[in-house]
Design a protein around this nucleic acid. Sequence first.
DNA 1: ATGGTTGCTTAGCAA
Length: 264
Amino acid sequence: MPASIPTSLASWNVNSIRARKDRTLAWLETYQPEVLCLQETKVTDDAFPRADFEALGYHVTTCGQKTYNGMALLSRTEPSDVIRRFDDDDAEPEARFLSARFADLQIICVYVPNGQVVGSDKYAYKLAWLDRLQRHLERHCDPDQPLVLCGDLNIAPEDRDVCEPAAWAETVLCEPGVRDAFRRLCGWGLVDTFRLHHDAEKLYSWWDYRQLAFQKNQGLRIDHILVTRTLSRRCTRVQIDRQARKGKGASDHAPVLATFSNEG
DNA sequence: ATGGTTGCTTAGCAA
């Protein structure tokens, strides 16, 4: 078993790293994952509060922009082969794709476009973006090698991932087009680690700030850790940390944490 | 009831 396989890896849409810095630092100290993939950092690379995370012993790899989107990879070891934005388009204005290598392990962190409303220009962009992600995997990655694709996919893959499936069915998080895209990613060779360990369970990773959605548990599971076969065999546990969504000053997303063993 | 909440940036957008 390669030594580079992390014992644990997490993904969290923090909805601004500057607004969530203290919560993120505290969470890291508690769970101490090998890698934490952040989305919606909402900050340019030069303004990312990297020193605070480096002080905890993490390398900080950012792919940010002003105001919107943005990701960061916090990791115990330093990555190589960092790719920011799809490498087939240097002009891509939105920071939504960050890929890095840790020895023989490839990690791709994504913040998939939300899409706003089915039928809108933004929704067409979401579907096109998901196609580009699929193409990236097909052209540049190997499903037989250790690879993690994680982040805010803005897709609830099945009805069991949705509080009220009928009410959400025609929204940008659930309608058939995005669920097809999710299935195509899995068809390439990815496994939804959460469903390895939670079958019929309805657990969510995002709750709207409005209408007391969290208190009423009106959520959806749209944040995912997908892995190739060689890693799914070693995935021993996946948790969604609801605790982190609680209280004033929380992100509207909870972190997802996957644990791996070195035994295959 | 087309609302409501949050963050960034400062009235409006995105989620």
